[in-house]
Amino acid sequence: MKFSDVPILLEGEILFDASAGNDVIDKAYAADLLSDVLALTEERTTLITGTISPQVIRVAEILNVIAIIFVRGKRPSQEIIDYAQRLDIPMLTTRKTMFETCGLLYANGVRPCKNRTADE
C-alpha cells in the first residue's frame, strides 16, 4: 500500500512525508527492541516501533529502513524528524497499539519482512 494511505488507515499523523519514489509499504517488522531489529531483520523493511530513542533513526540509517511508524502515541524529537528528512525516511505516529497497527497493515496487504529468530 502507499505510505500516503497509511495515516488514514491508522488514524495517524505524518511527521515527515515520503518523497516521490519512496512511497510503497509492502513489508514490515515490529519491535521495541532495536537490538532485535538489528539482529533479526534480513532485508529493507518498514519499522513499526514504540521506541523513540536517538538510536532509532541511526538503526534505520544502517539498515536502510523504508519508513518508520511510531505506535502508542509516541512522538520522536524534532532532531530525529530532521535526521529522517535528511535520509528521506518517511515517518508517522499513531495512537493505536502495536498489535492493532500490525493487524490493520496486514489486512491491507503488508507482509513480514524476511527475518530470522534469535535461535537461528
Binding site: 527492541l33 532495536l34 537490538s35 538489528l38 539482529a39 516501533t49 530513542s53 534469535a118
Partner: peptide
C-alpha cells in the same frame, strides 16, 4: 529503555 540490551550484540 533505549531499545538495547536484548543480548544479541556479540552474536550479531
Amino acid at each position: 529503555n533505549l531499545g538495547f540490551g536484548a543480548g544479541m550484540g556479540l552474536v550479531n
